[in-house]
């Protein structure tokens, strides 16, 4: 599918803040995407902005969790706990 190929080529950065329920929910969704083959584990990183605040500054991320989807040409931000996996899939497809 074209959608999945787009996602696979993208780098995913999940910015979370500590061990909140929203952080856990977002991590779980990200794991599910990797499990479904929609994202490559090597292209995914998870950053705790309270530990590494420079990432928040660099990406201008004020909301957590935030999933930054970077392709060679675009950067898309999905904000939220990503608890609706299907919704995230369609957003990734649009990105």
């Amino acid at each position: 599918m074209t959608e999945t190929s787009t996602s696979r080529s993208a780098e995913l950065t999940l910015l979370v803040a500590g061990e909140s329920s929203a952080s856990r929910s977002a991590r779980a969704t990200l794991d599910a995407l990797i499990g479904d083959g929609l994202a490559e584990a090597s292209q995914v990183r998870v950053i705790d902005v309270l530990q590494q605040p420079d990432f928040a500054l660099r990406y201008k991320v004020y909301f957590t969790p935030s999933l930054i989807v970077e392709t060679s040409t675009t950067t898309t931000t999905i904000v939220g706990d990503l608890h609706e996996v299907d919704e995230v899939k369609s957003l990734l497809a649009a990105a």
Binding site: S20, A22, A56, F63, S66, I78, V79, G80, D81
Partner: peptide, 15 residues
């Protein structure tokens, strides 16, 4: 900016 689910403003605090 796309929104999916609940979120907080700790990113601002981190910034």
């Amino acid at each position: 900016l796309h929104v999916s689910g609940r979120f907080d403003m700790q990113g601002l605090i981190a910034t």
